[in-house]
């Protein structure tokens, strides 16, 4: 009787130990599984929620042609996608910003070689409430707004109202791209890499939340991708410097290079793509694939 009781006790302890081990193991970084290439007929694309609608359109069209292929697309944010590629949990990372050197280092430490493909381009519009009298801004003015140096619309020729500055949160590639290109004015004479988003900037979890707030708030300013601009908000014309012409965002102005806030939309794979992933990316870059880009509201590569 006593023995049996002890046995049960030991069994309980053994099972408990198993659970603990399982939990500790779960906390350990897993090995990168699968090299992402080869002849897998199902693969996943994850990352930027800007690229997401485009990837979905491409994936559906590609799966119609090749019924044996299945593609899973998800869009939690560029950083998530690149982190997933590094962790080996996705085959293709979609991103709306360039991969950082620190991320390349982390990837290589895990035996992953990020391979970059530009699949489309996106123009970032700067939008305000339709009743806002301000219609154009320079990059330097935008930088001053987002870094907190200009806080009232009056300083920009608008009404005497404080500016409510809206941004995407740090999960978003748009956040990083806008910071480097506009807040820090990359490529301009006034470039200043120590500039950061000011403390009064509101970081929102999604682009649609920013559109929603801008549509209902006369003091707001926000930077959605061109595809997200609706009739409820007004896009501003942007000047590279005070001497340049003011250009409204559109597919044409983005493609001919006159609109200044244009970014590449990228796919990253582990090494050059092969097999079905190569077929898919070839389709994306083909004239048929690039025709879809305009439908979604983005800008074709060529």
């Amino acid at each position: 009787m006593y023995d049996r009781f002890m046995m049960r006790k030991w069994l309980t302890l053994a099972i408990a130990a198993l659970f603990i081990t399982a939990i500790v193991l779960a906390g350990c970084p897993g090995d990168p599984n699968g090299d992402g290439n080869g002849d897998t007929l199902s693969f996943s694309i994850t990352g930027s929620n800007t690229v997401q609608p485009l990837s979905v359109v491409w994936a559906e069209a590609f799966m119609d042609q090749r019924s044996e292929v299945s593609i899973a697309v998800s869009g939690p944010g560029s950083g998530v996608g690149i982190a997933a590629l590094i962790d080996g949990t996705t085959e293709v990372a979609q991103s709306s910003r360039l991969i950082r050197q620190s991320e390349i280092d982390q990837a290589q430490a895990r035996g992953v070689n990020p391979y970059e493909i530009t699949v489309a381009q996106d123009a970032l519009a700067v939008v305000v409430h339709p009743s806002n009298p301000v219609t154009e801004l320079t990059i330097a003015q935008l930088s001053a707004i987002y870094s907190g140096q200009i806080t009232n619309w009056q300083e920009l020729g608008g009404e005497d109202l404080p500016i409510v500055v809206l941004s995407r949160d740090t999960n978003s590639g748009t956040h990083v791209f806008f910071k480097e290109t506009v807040v820090q004015m990359r490529g301009l004479a006034t470039e200043e890499t120590s500039l950061e988003y000011g403390p009064n900037v509101l970081f929102l979890p999604s682009t649609s939340a920013g559109i929603e707030e801008t549509a209902g708030n006369t003091r707001a300013i926000f930077y959605p991708g061109l595809a997200y601009v609706t009739a409820d908000v007004q896009a501003l014309a942007i000047k590279r410097t005070a001497d340049d012409p003011a250009v409204l965002p559109s597919v044409e102005t983005a493609q001919d290079g006159t609109y200044p806030v244009v970014r590449p939309l990228l796919y990253y794979t582990n090494g050059a793509p092969a097999g079905v992933i190569k077929d898919f990316i070839d389709y994306c870059l083909s004239p048929a694939g690039q025709a879809r880009v305009v439908d979604v509201g983005y800008v074709p590569v060529q």
């Binding site: 944010g77 998530v80 590094i86 620190s102 982390q106 740090t170 979890p205």
Partner: peptide
């Protein structure tokens, strides 16, 4: 936490 964890590389 929620708005940052997706971007964070594991162990960074």
């Amino acid at each position: 936490i929620a708005s940052g964890i997706g971007n964070a590389v594991r162990g960074g």
